[in-house]
Design a protein around this nucleic acid. Structure first.
Lengths: 229, 229
DNA sequence: GCAAAAGTGTTTTCATTACACCCATGT
DNA sequence: ACATGGGTGTAATGAAAACACTTTTGC
């Protein structure tokens, strides 16, 4: 018997903070809980970790089970462990965050999720447990990371215009950026591929399309580079 | 009964990565374990979290019990949760790190610590559990944080010279810094108090003494400032 | 031909870097 | 008087910020 019985009176869970972008606003993937505690309330998709699974695996499994979302890169944010954060016992939770393109995934409620939906981050005021706090913490980390690394490409379609990319940065950072300076900077990083294709079906001058060049990024990253907007 | 029994077959611990500076090298506070697993090996001071304590509290309690170190600011680094990281069961651990001035604390082994000691970070090659990995991860975070915030003052005496401060940055970052530029920069931040006192007992021109001005730092921080060396 | 967004360069400003000599003290 | 680290300023370079007009398409 490795430890005394009493230490087993605790459990740990994972919670996923999944940000999505619809071209206009920043959204969060939430489930409506079917079961108690907090039945009927919106919550982050999360659940207890099984004894035989690693944390990120657990996070991916839970996300898939509850929302149908699969195959995404999750980054650990922080562990929340206040004694009273869960009404039914001592449950600490490890939060993970990710960015995804809303148009690329289909969401589907299952397990103890009664519904799944994308909700605007700015409109959220209450969530189950301490999930508002977890969301705010993750959002702060997202903003910080967005300034240091080229994340954010995940949130767009495969092919995107520079204006779309700029809009994404503006929405996440909640600040306006200068068009010329933004383009100069993002292009000078050498992590975009010009596709020599144009936007179609717009009633104005069509924009050039770009895609994120993961290989170039790897090279640049190895040489130790700092991404900053 | 909140959850099924089986989820209680897991536990969580905290581990402390305590960096210290002796004016010359960066050190890590370690304990020699008295008990199994890993009896006789050096390890980070850590232990299982009790059901009734918050995580940081647990971290402080464990640190005090094992090493005698009290009253320090601990920052959460990351949670490590590989299924096989603990030989006796499923134990995930939340790592905290801190910086302290070696001369200011007295360390004292107790509980399941047979010894406590400061070991040079550069000389470490193996530790109990996955503690080397945890240390490396924390060191990376320390370096990152050192560039963004004025931590590091914790590692020095109340009164210090600019050369001492520079030496600290050089040791942690493992790079040489230009004396004039370092001084220009650190002074321009307005977070140091000039004490109008001089070093004594040195066989060269005595240096001016400074102290960290926490109030000025709070003001500057509120106005949103970025510390960078 | 008008509306709507795309696309494009230059100047100014500021921060970073590189760099060498005199100063105050103890022995 | 010499050895030791303390202390100081300036010029050159490069990055960031500010800023306005022409272009291309659909209707």
């Amino acid at each position: 018997m490795p430890f005394q019985k009493e230490i087993y009176k605790s459990a740990f869970s994972v919670d996923n903070v999944i940000f999505g972008f619809d071209g206009d606003t920043l959204k969060l993937l939430l489930i409506k809980r079917k079961e108690n505690p907090y039945a009927g309330q919106w919550a982050l998709p999360g659940d207890i970790v099984k004894p035989t699974e690693n944390l990120v695996e657990a996070s991916k499994r839970v996300l898939l089970q509850l929302t149908g979302v699969r195959d995404i890169y999750l980054e650990q944010v922080h562990t929340f462990g206040a004694v009273d954060r869960h009404p039914k016992g001592r449950v600490i939770t490890i939060a993970y965050y990710a960015l995804i393109n809303i148009a690329k995934v289909k969401i589907e409620a299952a397990s103890f999720a009664e519904q799944v939906a994308w909700k605007e981050v700015r409109s959220l005021d209450s969530l189950a447990f301490d999930h508002i706090r977890i969301m705010n913490y993750s959002l702060a980390k997202l903003r910080q990371d967005l300034k240091l690394r080229p994340i954010g490409f995940e949130l767009l379609a495969e092919k995107f215009t520079l204006t779309e990319l700029q809009r994404l940065y503006e929405v996440v950072l909640e600040q306006d950026l200068d068009k010329r300076n933004f383009r100069k900077k993002i292009l000078s990083m050498g992590i975009l591929k010009t596709l020599h294709e144009l936007q179609t079906g717009v009633s104005h001058r069509p924009a050039k399309l770009y895609s994120f060049d993961a290989e170039k990024y790897e090279v640049v990253k190895r040489e130790g580079f700092i991404f900053e907007i």
